[in-house]
Amino acid sequence: MNESTVLVIEDDIPVRNLIITTLKTHDYGCLTAADGSEAIMMASSHNPDVVFLDLGLPDMDGIDVIRRIRSWSNMPIIVISARSDDTDKIEALDAGADDYLTKPFSVEELLARLRATVRRLHMMTGGSAADRSVYTNGKLTIDYSAGYAALNGEELKLTPIEYRLLCLLAKNTGKVLTHNYITRNIWGRSWDNDTASLRVYMTMLRKKLDSPPDSPGYIQTHIGIGYRMIKVDES
């Protein structure tokens, strides 16, 4: 049995069955809730490792569930949304969700997101990632105190803004950071021009980081939403 327990909050029975079946076949522990109030109760009483949350619940808005859970816990929340509108996802992410899945999603995608989240959990058990002065992720190392980043042991030549972007993403490894969140952290505001600048800096940073052919792709682009640093498997 996989040691992680997952709370699945979903009112649609076939989809819930699909998720549960998928999780069980991959040895995850499973808890289910069909509405918001039950979900909050389950989350507080069972303290699951990861939460899958459907945004369209019968009794309350999924965003409110995120806010309620975030008021006491940092447990990873992966949002499931049938709405193709990006603003819902952005709202959920800004409310504290870690990741999102859009219906229809494939089983592989679901498992991949879950694995990435669990990996991040393991990394964080050794102490908060943000507190450590040296960050390692695959072949990427960042020495926060020395203001130094290296890939494959070679120093990465980054501009100050690129370095700050890298640090911000690294400190939130595994989380999708929205454009808004990033620009506000880097420039202290979120103007149109900053969003444009962000696209350009991110593209340049990604070229430096992900250009080697063996690169696992550290930074993921979520079109219309934001960026995420992936926790790369050591193996």
């Binding site: 509108d85 990006d86 454009h179 149109d192 969003t195 696209r199 593209t203 682009t221 079109i223 219309g224």
Partner: peptide
């Protein structure tokens, strides 16, 4: 249209 500034190659990749 819900427009935003995007890098063309990111969109192609996606």
């Amino acid at each position: 249209l819900h427009r935003s500034l995007e890098v063309m190659d990111d969109v192609i990749e996606e």
